[in-house]
Amino acid sequence: MTRTAREAPHHRTLTCYTNYGCRLPECVERKRAWARDRDRSLRAGTWQPLVDAAPVREHLQRLMEAGLTQQAIADTAGVAHQSISDFTHHRGKRRGLRHRTDPEFAAKILAVTVDTVTAGRVDATGSHRRIQALVAAGWPLLHIGRQFGIDEQRPEQILRVQRIFAATRSQVYTGYEWLQHQRPERHGVPKHKARQARERAASNRWPTPRYWTDRMDVIDDPDFEPLYGVTKREIVAQDAHWLIVQGRLDRASAAARLGVSKAYIDHAFRDHPQYAVDVAA
């Protein structure tokens, strides 16, 4: 029976080599470098063996009982999300909970407190727009996560929150600067997946990287409203709605204020009924 190889969630630690059988040249070299460091430390008598993982697991449990998510803990500690879940969830029939861990990793987790997690968050508007622009360019969210070097589910999660860690924002900004100039089909994205990503962006009116090229001074501004994919008729319908409801004008007066005919407003309301207002002419 053929066994399907699992894909590593990331390629930044030894996990992909040891747990997923990854043999990318850079990952093999990372493994060899780790072995060389271990051998040097053993000869020097400074090697630190693995320590009991129970204190780390108990600390994680307390943090999660306080309402913190594993992703928030991982972001604060500067470690991969998978490395957190290894302490809290069984990894299949052959691999149970982690019972030993690296001292340095343990120190990172034990240093995390509720206060350190909730501090240091920033507005996510710019990150939302960069991720959405990449989707508009044909990058599926899962592929964006892989290219950013973060958990593949993370971009979807970022789009659902209003504030993120500064370190996460930095990862998105750095990844976007490179990825916006790349064609997804040349980096392992199937054509039909790229097409689906573009269709998703179009249905949500997510601007493309080209749109933001001349607007980088406002891409992070939450008060700036991109009018990407919005027609003149829809803008007139929005403005007419506001003038009629808030300004208490009739349609003829609203039309004169907007420099269009009353018939144009009627057509705008017909095409965009969500803005239509039933008032006298």
Results as ranks from 00 to 15, higher is better:
1 M>F: 05
2 T>V: 12
3 R>K: 15
9 P>T: 14
12 R>Q: 11
15 T>W: 02
16 C>S: 03
19 N>W: 04
20 Y>M: 10
22 C>N: 02
22 C>D: 01
24 L>R: 08
29 E>S: 12
32 R>N: 07
33 A>H: 06
34 W>Y: 11
35 A>H: 10
35 A>M: 11
35 A>C: 08
36 R>S: 11
38 R>S: 05
39 D>E: 12
40 R>F: 05
42 L>F: 08
47 W>Q: 02
47 W>H: 14
48 Q>W: 09
48 Q>F: 05
49 P>I: 05
50 L>C: 03
52 D>F: 12
53 A>N: 12
53 A>D: 09
58 E>G: 00
59 H>C: 05
59 H>F: 13
59 H>Y: 05
60 L>Q: 01
60 L>F: 09
63 L>I: 01
64 M>D: 01
69 T>L: 03
77 A>P: 06
77 A>F: 13
78 G>K: 00
78 G>T: 05
79 V>M: 09
80 A>R: 13
81 H>T: 10
87 F>T: 01
94 R>L: 04
95 R>I: 09
95 R>K: 12
96 G>N: 15
96 G>F: 12
99 H>V: 03
101 T>R: 04
101 T>Y: 06
103 P>L: 12
104 E>T: 10
104 E>M: 08
104 E>H: 05
112 V>H: 14
114 V>E: 15
114 V>D: 15
118 T>R: 14
119 A>T: 14
121 R>E: 00
121 R>I: 11
121 R>Q: 14
122 V>S: 09
126 G>C: 02
127 S>R: 07
129 R>L: 07
129 R>W: 13
134 L>E: 00
137 A>H: 04
139 W>C: 03
140 P>S: 05
142 L>A: 04
143 H>L: 07
147 Q>D: 03
147 Q>P: 04
149 G>L: 14
150 I>S: 02
153 Q>R: 08
154 R>F: 15
154 R>H: 14
157 Q>K: 11
157 Q>G: 00
157 Q>V: 08
158 I>G: 02
158 I>D: 00
163 R>D: 04
164 I>K: 05
165 F>C: 04
169 R>H: 07
170 S>W: 06
173 Y>V: 15
176 Y>H: 10
178 W>P: 00
178 W>K: 06
184 P>K: 07
185 E>D: 11
187 H>A: 07
187 H>Q: 15
188 G>V: 12
189 V>L: 09
190 P>C: 06
192 H>T: 10
195 R>W: 14
202 A>V: 10
203 S>F: 06
203 S>C: 04
203 S>Q: 13
205 R>P: 01
205 R>G: 02
207 P>T: 07
208 T>G: 00
209 P>Y: 13
211 Y>K: 07
212 W>N: 02
217 D>M: 09
221 D>R: 11
225 E>L: 10
225 E>K: 13
227 L>I: 00
232 K>V: 01
232 K>C: 02
235 I>E: 08
235 I>R: 10
236 V>K: 04
238 Q>K: 08
239 D>H: 11
240 A>W: 06
243 L>A: 11
245 V>D: 10
249 L>I: 05
251 R>V: 02
254 A>T: 02
256 A>Y: 02
256 A>T: 13
258 L>P: 02
259 G>Y: 08
262 K>M: 11
262 K>V: 09
264 Y>C: 01
265 I>Y: 14
266 D>H: 06
267 H>L: 06
270 R>F: 07
271 D>G: 14
272 H>T: 01
272 H>L: 01
274 Q>P: 00
275 Y>G: 03
